[in-house]
Amino acid sequence: MTQTPPILELRDVDTFYGPVQAHFGLSLRVERGEIVCLLGGNASGKSTTMKIILGLVKPTAGDVLIDGVSVLGLSTPRIVRLGVGTVPEARRLFGAMSVRENLLMGAFTRNDKAAVAADLERVLALFPRVAERIGQQAGTLSGGEQQMVAMARALMARPRIIIMDEPTMGLSPLWVDRVLSLIRDINGEGVSIFMVEQNANLALQIADRGYVLQTGRVVIEAAAADLLVDTRIRDAYLGGAEAA
């Protein structure tokens, strides 16, 4: 693409949990401004990929780069400060804290109080539903509302890339649509998106490119539009035995 390095890149990553290998030479990248989708069934190694990027799990081999610079060995807070926002699997809000407190925790790494306050207004404008619930305890919200708060919380860090783990999980079709169009909106503001999804066909509708992960290996890499019409990918995302 351009001369600038990808915002996120994994190079030949191997990961082990005890004797079980979760990744086999995993390589992928997200260019600036892209929405990239990582598809795969349960236990294919998707969530481990998220943990590797955030420094929560250390790979046994390979490298993880942000803006072309290795972040291996950096603590999670350091990686967050480099501009990596996260929407974790199952939202993981701070259930007993208010929605406002949750959002401001999203800006924990920032010290510019005035700008944080301005961003809070901006984010609430983007998520009117969240604004209505601002004083409520986060744990009492519905699943869809919690997903909104989780995305809003990630935005509060002013990230350059947001990584999302199954953002549509457990949501009704209506909420799935809302969440996906919001992801497009966020991307429209220049934030790159790396999302792990099982609900592949939905995710691919908003993505630029996709990777298919199977038992810890990337088996397909292609433009989202191509993946949508690729019969192999239909099998893979719905778990067909004949993929690859």
Binding site: T76, R81, T86, F94, M105, G106
Partner: peptide
């Protein structure tokens, strides 16, 4: 205080606190 919030957030969900950048 900011670190007071961090203490509460960590108590509620340690991993989530990490990913918002709490040490």
């Amino acid at each position: 205080t900011k670190w007071g919030w961090a203490v509460r957030a960590t108590a509620l969900d340690r991993d989530a606190a990490r990913v918002v950048g709490v040490d």
